[in-house]
């Protein structure tokens, strides 16, 4: 098949448009990624980095139960956070989309994402105070007679989950809301005409149609949550370690960049698997 001059010109134009993105991606993603992958195959021995290829770092990760446990902890916490965030964000997004008058919806959304405007670190430290023994949550529970002694909410997995959920509910609310407002009211009218109850309409019509929004939000939650260091470090009290914390531990004093790179690649592999699952699921939904 011959390429006409016009088509060749179009191709050149297309490459011209794509070139900045390609250069950017190569310079700031592919090259650093390849470099990190190479470093992960080096080792730190005798206080120095030894640039010989080996899988020792990966073997150490899968061979040491306390390192492997960090990955399992990360997966558990991320799964809990994602599920709770969806359960809280969906009704919130639905209320904003369906029950709040149109003219107030923008204000309601701004109110919902207001905590985004504060620093992530400040927000985590604020939660530390709120969840402390003398904090507002424990004092309220004691005052209401629900508990006799303060609960250990901070410096625990509960604290980490609460800190994460507060953040990710906002994110998921946005993605689910965006999905909900695009749904034509005709779907509900048609379901009602066919005799479906409100619950049946939600279960068989609205929920399936908003699943893409949920999945996109859940994937973003998963990626951001599993890679986060600040929240578990401040609110978890180091009573268990998540993978990002173990990565930082390699760097703090010993500057073991090869091990940190290997752990980071393991983390990236998990995120890639999550992405493939979501992409496959969304593709299946479309077909």
């Amino acid at each position: 098949m011959t390429v006409t001059p016009l088509e060749r010109a179009e191709q050149r134009k297309a490459w011209g448009f794509a070139l900045p993105a390609l250069v950017w991606t190569t310079a700031f993603f592919l090259f650093p990624f390849a470099y990190m992958a190479a470093i992960s195959l080096w080792t730190r021995s005798g206080g120095k980095i030894v640039a010989t290829w080996t899988l020792d770092n990966y073997a150490a990760f899968f061979g040491k139960s306390h390192l492997l446990k960090a990955l399992l902890n990360s997966l558990e916490v991320t799964a809990i956070v994602t599920v709770i965030s969806i359960l809280l964000a969906y009704p919130l997004a639905w209320i904003i989309a369906e029950r709040v008058p149109k003219r107030w919806q923008r204000m309601a959304l701004i109110m919902a994402i207001l905590p985004f405007w504060t620093s992530y670190v400040v927000r985590s430290y604020s939660w530390l105070l709120v969840l402390s023994k003398g904090g507002v949550v424990n004092q309220t529970l004691i005052w209401a007679g629900l508990v006799a002694e303060p609960l250990q909410l901070s410096a625990s997995r509960t604290g980490t989950v609460i800190g994460f959920v507060h953040f990710f509910v906002m994110l998921l609310t946005l993605t689910i809301y965006a999905n909900l407002v695009q749904l034509s009211p005709n779907y509900r009218r048609a379901a009602a005409d066919l005799g479906a109850s409100g619950l049946q309409t939600f279960r068989h019509v609205i929920l399936p149609l908003t699943l893409p929004g949920i999945m996109v939000g859940a994937f973003l939650t998963f990626v951001l949550c599993i890679g986060d260091y600040i929240t578990p470090q401040i609110l978890g009290g180091n009573n268990e370690l998540l993978l990002p914390q173990v990565i930082m531990l390699q760097l703090g004093r010993r500057a073991d960049f090869p091990m940190a790179a290997a752990l980071s690649l393991v983390l990236m592999a998990v995120v890639t698997l999550a992405y493939l699952f979501c992409a496959r699921w969304l593709k299946m939904e479309r077909t």
Binding site: G46, K48, K64, R254
Partner: peptide, 18 residues
Amino acid sequence: VDAELDAAMQDVWTEMLQ
């Protein structure tokens, strides 16, 4: 400590945290 003992100490500490 030398690098090996340092690494072993970090491992012990990580185990304790977990």
